[in-house]
Design a protein around this nucleic acid. Sequence first.
DNA 1: TAGATATGTTAGATTTACTTAACAAATAAA
DNA 2: TTTATTTGTTAAGTAAATCTAACATATCTA
Lengths: 164, 164
Amino acid sequence: MGKDKKCSPDMEDYLETILVLKRKNKVARVRDISQSMHVKPPSVASALHTLSRDGFVIHESYGYVDLTSEGEKLAKMIQKRHEMLNKFLREILCINPKTAAEDACRMEHAISQETSKKLTKFLEFVQTCPDSDRPDWLKSFDHYFKTGKRLKCKIQEMKQKGNL
Amino acid sequence: MGKDKKCSPDMEDYLETILVLKRKNKVARVRDISQSMHVKPPSVASALHTLSRDGFVIHESYGYVDLTSEGEKLAKMIQKRHEMLNKFLREILCINPKTAAEDACRMEHAISQETSKKLTKFLEFVQTCPDSDRPDWLKSFDHYFKTGKRLKCKIQEMKQKGNL
DNA sequence: TAGATATGTTAGATTTACTTAACAAATAAA
DNA sequence: TTTATTTGTTAAGTAAATCTAACATATCTA
C-alpha cells in the first residue's frame, strides 16, 4: 500500500512541467520551468523548495532539477491524464485544439482516479472501433450537434421494417 | 455585449451555494453558507466582501445575502454545469454518485463554455435516444469496460453476412 | 423587557503562490 | 583569465483564502 503522496494543483503543474522538460531536453532547469509555466524564476525556486521538502523533487543549489520516484510517479499520472483529456476533448467532442488544451490543463487536477480510468477506457473503446475511424453513433452525434435533429440509425430503420 | 464578469473558482462556489440556498430556503444567510461550504463564518464574511465589491452580491450588515443580476447569471451558469457534469459522470460513465459529485464540483470551474455546450448536447443526445434507456453503443462500452472485449454490433454482423 | 442563545463581524495570524529588487554563482566570450 | 552575460537565489512584499479569538447585534424565551 504505497500511500500515494499528494500535492496541490499548482505543485502538480510543476511536476508535470519538469517531466516534460526532462523528456525534451534530458534535464530540467529553473529557467526552462520558469519560461514554460510563465512564472518568474523566484516562483520556481519557491515551488522547488516545497516540492523538495515534500519529497517530490531533488534539487541542489544551481543544479539541475530532478524528480524523485514519488515525484515521477505523480508527474506521469498527471501527464497521462492531460493527454487523455486532450484527446477526449479533441477527438470525441471535437473541441477546438486551443480550447481543448486549456481545458485539459485545468481538468487534469479536477478528476478522480475513477473518472480518469473510465474516460481512458472510453477513449480506447472509441479508438479501437473496427468499422470506421469515427463510429456511427458519434457521427450521429455530430449531426445532432449541428442540426439539433436525430438521424434514425440503421438498426431502428430495420426494426421498423420488421427486419430485426 | 454584456462583458461577462468573472471571479475565482472559490468565489464561484460561494455564488453557487447562495443560489442553491435561496432556492431551498427562499433566503441565504451567512450561517447556512458557512455550513454548506464547510468553512467558518469569518471566511464567508470575507468572501461576501469581495463578491460585494465586485458586484456579484448585495449584503447589508446582519442581513440576508442576495445575488445581483450579474451574480445570479454567473451562479446559474455554474450550477447548470455542475448538474450537467454530475449527470454525465453518473449516467454516461457510471461513476459512483459520491465520486461523481466531488468531481463535478471541481470540474465545473475547469471547463470552457465550448466544452460545456458540447457535453450538454452530448448528454441530451444520449438521453433522447429513442430505442432504449441506454443506447446500444453505451451498453457495448459497459461490456468493454468490464471485460476488455468488444462485442460485435448488429450492424457489423450483418455487414459480414452481406445483409447490408 | 431582560437575559440567554444564536448569529454575524472585525481584528489579527497563517498558508500558498506569486511578484520585484538585489545579490551570487556559473558559463561564455574577449 | 578577466569581464560580461546568463542563470539562480534570497529577501521582502502583495493578494487570496482560510483560521481563531474577541466582540457586536439579533432573536428567542422566561
